[in-house]
Design a protein around this nucleic acid. Structure first.
Lengths: 332, 332
DNA sequence: TGGCATTATTGAAGCGCTTCAAAAGCAAGA
DNA sequence: TCTTGCTTTTGAAGCGCTTCAATAATGCCA
């Protein structure tokens, strides 16, 4: 920067003003300094900038699983708001590994980012607490357990399960099965609770079977579909509420392969609104999570806390999932 | 750090040594200073550290599409090597947007990262050149056109197309179709070239039809499958080489739905080894790209250039794709 | 033309660390 | 006791920027 100042015949402070508050600089000086910047190919050193200014224009986002489209959507939403507010968003993938998650939290802490978004894995959040104790705001996104000493954004999983189940009940099915697992996963258990509530509400004649799986994958879905196909028709559910689209997609494929008609013989609804739910031979109904909005809101909460730490009050925003009806649950 | 020094009754330099080269510090001092660090909850400021030291322990990775599992694999490989070599990896998602890509390149440039990995979109690379001109190494990953003034890692796309096509020819099919698009995409065109080579080699009787699509999505695949199903059997290809798994997956689903048997009536092979290729009712053969290895090698090249800028010689490593045979191309 | 209020520019003091020459401490041999 | 050759520790000089009080330049009005 000193070179630029010399080249333009001004002082260091003026170059700094050109960069940060051009309004304070006389037009002629402005153009002259800018010309020098270009001529010298000057790039300001953001390390020194943040160090001297004592503030950062960067946010960090530690993501539990970059391979999951929900988190990619969240990241996109977060990136959008960051951009709008003149902040940059840096991502780190913890890859469902607690040690990596903690290490990236520390990295962002040491890098003095303005704040951190954390989509955590099921596990202890002490590293996040440490970051927070250094005066660096942390917002939890899609965390299993809402905290009171931090802002957060979650989706009402119970409601999602309820909506899905209510939807197939409305379509006329009565013998239902909920599938997903393991039930130790917060989301899977909550969605199941919602399903039970809907069935209880429906009253007489409606039943809900639980088919627990070990994972939420397409292969588990294929296995599920095959085992349903083998069942006697009178013992086969007429509708399956799945805790994940992957599961539902595998199930649909295996059923069709076995000659069972979807939705005529059996209706299926998934969860997550992944692209392969819509892009299926029989488009699969699902429950969408507002990932994009989650990312936006989380970032707004974070920026609010960064900018007015004084009168900021922590809160957890609960968003509603949305039913997306497609062919796989059509009334027959 | 001054607080720690005061608390431990030593000088600033000693605290710095405790942090950076503990071997230089007497054991008793070491424990005392470390106790003070813990007592005060001190976190070193990496901005100041990098600024003073003039070097960074962070790498940046600008990713064209975080929703594509190939790039996620690459990122994982890169992260692995970074970790092994004591570096941290920060990700940025350009989301197939040139402006965003450039903006993140500049961000990493200003943040004075040690070097940058770039999985670019088809488009101008001038922002990367700018970063490089500031003395910051850039390694291109999966770039359409290898450069001579930069290191790079690419996969031999032509070979991939050749392997896939050769495989279905070996399985006895003769009336082939290559599908994918648009052909302006480097990879799609290269894979097609490989397919043509294999068919020419096979000689008499083998034919290759080109079915260009507008995108490489499951929906395009569904449409493709439907249109193939409508064809007269004698004009229907007996094998389809698809430029992407998404396409192949949609195609398989639509064919099966229409009652056409895979692989008996028609064999299909995809490309990319996405999870939904393996997790299909009929597991789909595909060509795998060594994403993990690409990430590892790219990072190794980058670190080499960072650490010995003098005798580093730029090179582009070309990796070979790998045929993954599954049920969808079984001989009949 | 002089005086006053604005607007532009300057320059020095940090931000929190690393580095390294110099000083201090120490042990053992003469 | 005095050296000599080590190991430890010190402290001041930056790294490249922002900030802000102080200064200089400018415009306006009487």
């Amino acid at each position: 920067m000193a070179d630029v100042a010399r080249h333009a015949g001004v002082s260091l402070g003026t170059v700094s003003n050109v960069l940060n508050s051009p309004a304070k600089v006389a037009p002629s000086t402005l153009t002259r300094v800018r010309a020098s910047i270009d001529a010298l190919g000057f790039v300001r050193n953001n390390l020194a900038r943040s160090l001297a200014a004592g503030r950062a224009d960067t946010l960090g986002f530690v993501i539990v699983d970059i391979g999951n489209s929900l988190f990619v959507d969240i990241a996109r939403g977060a990136q959008e708001v960051s951009g709008e507010q003149g902040m940059k968003l840096l991502l780190a993938n913890s890859d469902v590994d607690l040690a990596a998650q903690n290490s990236y939290l520390d990295l962002f802490d040491e890098a003095r980012v303005g704040g951190v978004l954390l989509a955590p894995l099921d596990g202890p959040l002490d590293a996040a607490a440490r970051v927070r104790s250094h005066g660096r705001p942390v917002v939890l996104v899609n965390a299993p357990d809402p905290q009171t000493d931090t802002c957060g954004v979650v989706v009402d999983e119970e409601l999602g399960g309820y909506l899905a189940t209510r939807h197939v009940l409305d379509s006329g099915r009565r013998r239902l099965a909920y599938t997903g697992g393991p039930l130790t996963l917060h989301a899977v258990a909550q969605r199941y609770a919602g399903a039970r509530r809907a069935v209880e509400e429906a009253g007489a004649g409606a039943t809900l079977e639980l088919i627990e799986t070990t994972k939420l994958t397409i292969s588990e879905g294929l296995a599920l579909g095959r085992s349903l196909a083998e069942r006697d028709e009178t013992h086969r559910p007429t509708a399956v509420i799945s805790a994940a689209d992957a599961l539902a997609s595998g199930c649909v494929q295996a059923l069709i392969y076995a000659g069972i008609r979807v939705p005529d013989d059996i209706a299926i609804i998934g969860y997550d609104n992944n692209h392969f739910a819509s892009d299926s031979v029989v488009p699969i109904s699902t429950v969408g999570q507002p990932g994009h909005e989650m990312g936006r809101i989380a970032t707004e909460l974070l920026l609010e806390e960064i900018r007015s730490p004084g009168d900021h009050v922590h809160r957890t925003i609960t968003l509603e999932p949305q039913l997306i009806a497609r062919a796989s649950t059509r009334s027959v």
